[in-house]
Design a protein around this nucleic acid. Structure first.
Lengths: 227, 227
DNA sequence: TAGATTGTTAATCGATTAACAATC
DNA sequence: TAGATTGTTAATCGATTAACAATC
């Protein structure tokens, strides 16, 4: 049994990150009534190789049979099960500043299987404020709500200075997945997953590429002048 | 000349994504007055291998000499130059909804070399609203401001339905780097860099790992019961 | 000198891509 | 049957890690 579990979880990160993209595209196909899709078609629309897609699916197996294309209506729930959203995952947002509000109001979060079941802040001016029907609650109630709602996933949008303290409370209350938007690294025990969303990394790597594009253009211009 | 440019730009994405992390850590060291740092120390604090750090630096070269550790005060500006933020990069935010406001109010953006020089929206209720001293401007003024301020990098926080149209306008106005928060793929011409920030990918890959952790725990429990 | 360090190349590891038998 | 498709393994490619000479 333990072996079988390992099988579906011992998957490269690169593959895991593509699963949501597969699901998104398949849902779009489903919405417009497409029934069958081949690995070639699906891969092409995602700008990847068909063999990569089949290789990814092979980690889980049994999506189709040799010779037959994938059935959209079978693949969607299969991927949802693999990702862990067959059943909606109640989610908490900690920190109701601008970013927390942006995420709380982000409708797709619900639609994609992560209903927000608690929004928390320490600021009395924010407590009570409603977002998509949810009032911002006092941080004092954090543990009670997490346990009552069975929340396993939390989105952390507090200032960097408070991130570790809040993370510790989340873990103690039973959260095992933290989506961290604070620009700081979190120390968590084994058996807790953290995903850091670093705005700075994104914009700086973009800046690097912009600089390279500009340099390339200058190079071309210089060459043109030489002629 | 063209060859030399290629040299500093033909760098793996994995390395590019680590540059901001190196810079961030080095700035922290600088702030507390540390003068020298070895690849081993720096790598350890970032939880990577020292050889990887040296290998990354080797793409650019000349940060130290064999036998001598890195000098923090030299490395910081060197990395800033490589990333392209020796000179502040004026940045625009398109879409002043919650997410746009969150980013506009995010002080670190300025501090890290990306001063916001324009915030835009079509909503009359938002136009004129001030964020960190910047008023939200009408989308009609987009092109004029981009050209006047020499903006090359834009952050896109508009609804998915409008993302492509706005991206086209940005590119036409001279933007060559788009940080896209809209959950949709953008088509841009050669010579324009796009970085997609997909909330859904982040939370779903987290969900996958949470599911695996839960399964592993169940597995352990089952085993414990068997004994 | 002895110990520590970098720059640089070689070895290892892992992810992507290609190939193809089995199947429809 | 012929053409298209998947599942699966092998080949290729690229990134990480180790090793070590040169240097301080």
């Amino acid at each position: 049994m333990a072996k079988k579990n390992r099988k579906t979880c011992d998957v490269p990160d690169a593959t895991i990150h593509r699963l949501p993209l597969y699901l998104e595209k398949l849902k779009m196909l489903q919405a417009i009534g497409v029934e069958d899709v081949s690995s070639r078609q699906l891969a092409e629309s995602l700008d990847i190789k068909a063999s990569q897609l089949r290789h990814d699916f092979h980690y889980f197996g049994g999506f189709s049979r040799p010779g037959r294309p994938y059935q959209v209506t079978k693949l969607v729930p299969a991927l949802e099960k693999i990702i862990g959203i067959s059943v909606p995952q109640p989610t908490a947002i900690i920190g109701a500043g601008h970013l927390g509000q942006a995420l709380a109001n982000y409708q797709n979060l619900d639609l994609q299987g992560f209903p927000v079941k608690g929004i928390f802040d320490t600021n009395p001016k924010l407590i009570g404020l409603e977002m998509r029907g949810q009032p911002v609650q006092d941080m004092d109630d954090l543990e009670a709500v997490i346990q009552r709602e069975g929340i396993k996933i939390a989105i952390l949008t507090v200032p960097a200075t408070q991130a570790q303290v809040v993370a510790d409370r989340l873990v103690a209350a039973g959260v095992i997945g933290i989506f961290n938007f604070a620009p700081t690294d979190l120390k968590v025990p084994e058996g807790v997953a953290v995903r850091n969303e670093r705005l700075a990394v994104g914009i700086m790597s973009l800046s690097f590429k912009v600089k390279c594009i500009l340099q390339a253009q200058e190079g071309e211009d210089a060459q043109a002048e030489e002629l």
